[in-house]
């Protein structure tokens, strides 16, 4: 039996993932086909509303699809609203960019949805490939494998699986990278070269604390704090 008088303090990091990520759509039928019929994400919520505040936006429907883990992707469809910007330019329903915007930049903002294994990744690949929105790219990164496509609104959607769990040393490396990045990002001409130089200094500085933590079989957490 646990000691009921013991007060367990709440963790510092308390958030529980994505409640919903919301995007505008001018093609509700295509959006529903893509998410509900092709990917088979259940419709879990919808709201009919009007613009009552100072914004006076048109009547609209806000609707939600379950993306697993009780997380949701949501859309706004505004009746009578026309898309903004030059529709031949790169971009999506939310924004159009300059004509000369490179693709890597356009695609940099995207939503990645997690699956647990290769079977599930391939299942979603199949669902997409059988649809109007086939997989555009399947990529094996260092530790993840991903498929990519663009939904009817031009939003890039990634479905990804982890090839192996993230290790404590990768957490340490990430912390060192970010500390090095903020050290150099506010200086003159940030570059990869400067980052790697600063990282080497931090690697040496924190190695001893890391080794001590490993010996005591402690979580590497204290090492991460500069």
């Amino acid at each position: 039996m646990t000691d009921e008088l013991e007060i367990v303090p709440k963790a510092d990091h308390r958030v529980m993932g994505v409640d919903h990520a919301a995007f505008p759509t001018f093609d509700p039928a295509g959006t529903v086909r893509f998410y509900r019929d092709v990917l088979r994400f259940p419709v879990v919520h919808s709201i009919c509303a009007a613009g009552w505040g100072p914004d006076k936006h048109p009547d609209f429907i806000h609707f939600f699809f379950d993306i697993g883990n009780d997380d949701r992707i949501a859309f706004f469809y505004y009746f009578g609203l026309k898309p903004y910007g030059d529709q031949t330019a790169p971009g999506d329903s939310w924004a159009r960019l300059d004509h000369d915007t490179p693709q890597f930049f356009t695609n940099s903002r995207h939503l990645a949805i997690h699956v647990v294994d290769e079977e599930d990744l391939l299942e979603y690949r199949k669902r997409l490939d059988d649809s109007e929105w086939p997989v555009e790219m399947q990529v094996m990164h260092e530790t993840i494998e991903s498929i990519y496509t663009h939904d009817p609104n031009g939003y890039m959607i990634e479905i990804t699986r982890a090839l192996r769990p993230v290790t404590p040393q990768e957490d340490l490396d990430a912390a060192i990278t970010i500390d090095a990045l903020i050290d150099i990002a506010e200086g003159e001409d940030p570059s990869m070269d400067k980052l790697l130089e600063r990282k080497a200094q931090l690697i040496v500085e924190r190695a001893e604390a890391w080794e001590r933590a490993q010996q005591h079989e402690l979580a590497p957490e204290p090492v991460l704090v500069p």
Partner: peptide
């Protein structure tokens, strides 16, 4: 909550 969500989304403070 559902009614409040519907109203606040449209900017109503009712």
């Amino acid at each position: 909550m559902g009614v409040a969500e519907q109203l606040s989304l449209g900017g109503s403070e009712a």
